[in-house]
Amino acid sequence: MDVQSDFTKDILIVTVPDNRIDAAVALQFKEAMRQATNNNAERIVLDLRNVDFVDSSGLGAIVGAMKQLPSNKSLDLSGLTPTVAKVFQLTRMDTIFSIYPDVETAMNGGDP
Rank of each mutant, 00 (worst) to 15 (best):
V54Y: 02
T81V: 05
G60H: 10
I99N: 04
F53D: 01
G60I: 07
P82I: 09
M107L: 15
Y100H: 15
F97D: 09
N108T: 12
D102L: 05
L80E: 04
G58K: 10
T81G: 06
P112N: 12
T81F: 01
G58P: 02
L69K: 13
V103G: 04
L75Y: 03
Q68G: 02
L75I: 10
G79Y: 10
V54W: 00
K73V: 04
L80F: 09
S78V: 08
M66V: 02
D52C: 00
S71I: 11
V84Y: 06
L59A: 14
N72T: 06
I99Q: 07
G110I: 03
M66N: 12
M66H: 12
A65M: 00
P112K: 14
A61L: 13
P70T: 15
G109C: 04
V54F: 01
L80I: 14
T105D: 09
A65W: 00
N50I: 01
V103E: 06
D52M: 02
K86G: 00
G60A: 08
D111W: 04
P70Q: 10
T81Y: 01
G64N: 07
G79K: 07
R92H: 11
F53A: 01
E104K: 15
F88E: 02
S56I: 08
K86P: 00
V87S: 09
K67L: 15
V63N: 09
A65C: 00
I99S: 07
A61Y: 11
T105H: 04
M66S: 13
